[in-house]
Write a protein that binds this DNA or RNA. Structure first.
Lengths: 124, 124
DNA sequence: ATAATATATCATTGTATTGTGATATATAAA
DNA sequence: TTTATATATCACAATACAATGATATATTAT
């Protein structure tokens, strides 16, 4: 078992979670839970542009979260390991209990209020 | 169980994973696996600045991944749920098999070549 | 009260990441 | 071959994020 009690281990593990931590990539992973798909199928299921999907698929592939197999002019992608799906399942279980908290977590999802600071008052 | 088959669900779930997907936050979570800690203890265990730790702790708290309890002038932080640790354990299991791939995933960890563009040329 | 310690907040700055559009490559069909 | 379809690559612009430093708040000790 990999030990993560060192700095490089934490880096690695964080990078693994990053694979899951982007809406576009997570969307792809969720889509692949129902079975292998071609890029075109992924694109249409996720409503993302083809280049964007390819870019994220590359990352997911290099991270080992998905595997690719070329068949003719198609490339079939699938989750690389059952544990990828297991992690999704477990996170959903956790999420169902902490959803409200996550929903309200604002540090990294601020509603884009670039200039709201001068909205009358704001003194503290 | 929360359904993630919709756009908001994926957003939420991605945000949950983001809590794990940053080295600083993951470092804090790993530190808390061995038991509750004060901010000062977390700071010294992780070698991060106090304000940085507080900022990340706030995110982790708002995401529901950690819980805080004030005791006198100390605030004790702990993992909020066993499943947080379980997710870490499971990711480590997965990582031990895909570690090489993750290590080589370059799309989001490019080696910092800030000024390489003007290395003779720079015309674009 | 004053000082000391513990923690939180917040604006700023630098950097990393995302999505896009243009283009390249590869395979198959006509 | 030419054309169409599927996928990949890559530079760029826009955005999002992390770490910092300064400062605020809260608790305890003197």
């Amino acid at each position: 078992m990999l030990t993560v009690s060192n700095s490089e281990g934490v880096q690695l593990q964080a990078k693994l979670f990053r694979g899951f931590g982007d809406p576009a990539r997570l969307n792809i992973l969720q889509t692949l839970r129902s079975g292998p798909k071609t890029v075109t199928e992924i694109v249409s299921a996720t409503c993302m542009s083809q280049s964007n999907a390819s870019n994220h698929l590359r990352c997911l592939r290099e991270c080992g979260l998905v595997a690719a197999e070329q068949q003719g002019k198609y490339v079939h992608y699938r989750l690389s390991d059952d544990r990828v799906g297991d992690l999704l399942t477990m996170s959903e279980s956790l999420l169902s209990d902490v959803a409200l908290g996550v929903y309200e977590c604002t540090r990294y999802n601020l509603p884009h209020k670039k200039s709201l600071a001068h909205e009358s008052g704001e003194n503290r």
